[in-house]
Design a protein around this nucleic acid. Structure first.
Lengths: 117, 117
DNA sequence: TCAACGGCTGAACAACTGTTCAGTTATTTT
DNA sequence: AAAATAACTGAACAGTTGTTCAGCCGTTGA
């Protein structure tokens, strides 16, 4: 006897097969989630937004978000390993910039959606 | 005597004024971060991706991400309060769909960026 | 009206995030 | 070579997130 609650009524449909089949695979979903996670913090958004305009050094960025250089350095490391920013050394200073245009675009889309909502 | 470390060499520039002035204001940044935070989880991405294709009920969604109905319900509440999804009641069933096209677009952008990186 | 069912919710708990603090590295200046 | 400086890092701590568990609410059908 079939006892599988709701499953009787709605899961066993070809529709579900189709939806499930269209789902991106695990690694891709993880990757996308990782990127969104990096964008899920106001201070990181500030850093990235600033970098859409201009290449900046760590202490400039620290001043911009009004926190310690250490805290910003940790954040920048996250952004680096997520490939959202790249850097360039010049003497004692390290200058950061966005890794590519895509990042700026995502940022802009998120801000626009937030402004409309 | 000026002792403010790096600040002497790089902060006091008109450039910084400009960058700072262009920064979106606090509420907007918080709003955008909130949206990105909702997108920062593989299971929520699965749910949203499924909903880009089809309106679905809670137990369908639960089956899709292979977790309990309770867990999905909690996730859906987050997505609801962030205005990423809306719902419709029909008898005992509750059907969810994306709140607007913008969500699908953001999702797609994130996945594309992840695929390229 | 009462049991069954789809879905929702609060509390609790483990896992994760972001900051601070202290200490390190690499480069420049004296 | 030594002191100073820009930036990085590991450990530790508070705050947050996602799941589970138990129980509740609203609708349906006997």
């Amino acid at each position: 006897m079939e006892k599988d609650l709701c499953r009787v009524s709605c899961v066993n449909r070809p529709l579900m097969e189709q939806v499930l089949k269209a789902l991106p695979d695990e690694p891709l979903l993880r990757g996308a989630a990782e990127i969104f996670k990096m964008l899920a913090d106001p201070n990181r958004l500030r850093l990235l937004h600033a970098l859409t305009q201009e290449e900046l050094c760590v202490c400039d960025l620290a001043a911009l978000v009004d926190t310690s250089a250490s805290a910003v350095s940790h954040q920048l490391r996250l952004l680096r390993t997520a490939r959202l920013v790249k850097y360039r050394r010049e003497g004692k200073m390290v200058y950061y910039q966005l890794d590519d245009e895509h990042v700026a675009h995502l940022l802009q889309e998120g801000l626009r959606h937030a402004a409309e909502g």
